[in-house]
Structures are given as structure tokens and as C-alpha cells.
Amino acid sequence: MNCEECDAPLTIPGDAIQGEIVSCKECGATYEVKKDEASGSISLKPAEKEQEDWGE
């Protein structure tokens, strides 16, 4: 899978779990891991952007 922003290849850790955030090493764009329960296949979707109410 390649980055939607800069087309660099994305590395997904072998033990990635549902909802994990993966960053593009080239441009820093973030993606969320989606796992298909039935087939176990993994896809990525652009992660949510930081919102004003995020934080501790």
C-alpha cells in the first residue's frame, strides 16, 4: 500500500491491530488500520485529523 499524499510505500507492522495509527515515513501522513474480521485482510484509511477537543 502506498501513501495517498506522496505515494511512498507504507509499512504496516505484522502485529498491527484494528484502529492502530500508521504514519508515512516520508511525509508523516497518518492512516488508520482497518481489519476485516472475516478474511483478516488489512486496509488503511486516512486517520482522523486532530480536533479542537482532543487532548488530556
Binding site: 480536533q51 479542537e52 477537543d53 482532543w54 487532548g55 488530556e56
Partner: peptide, 8 residues
């Protein structure tokens, strides 16, 4: 009053 990470 809410959120942050130091923001604002």
C-alpha cells in the same frame, strides 16, 4: 476548559 495537549 477542555481538550488541549497544551493547545490554546
Amino acid at each position: 476548559t477542555v481538550g488541549s495537549w497544551g493547545r490554546l
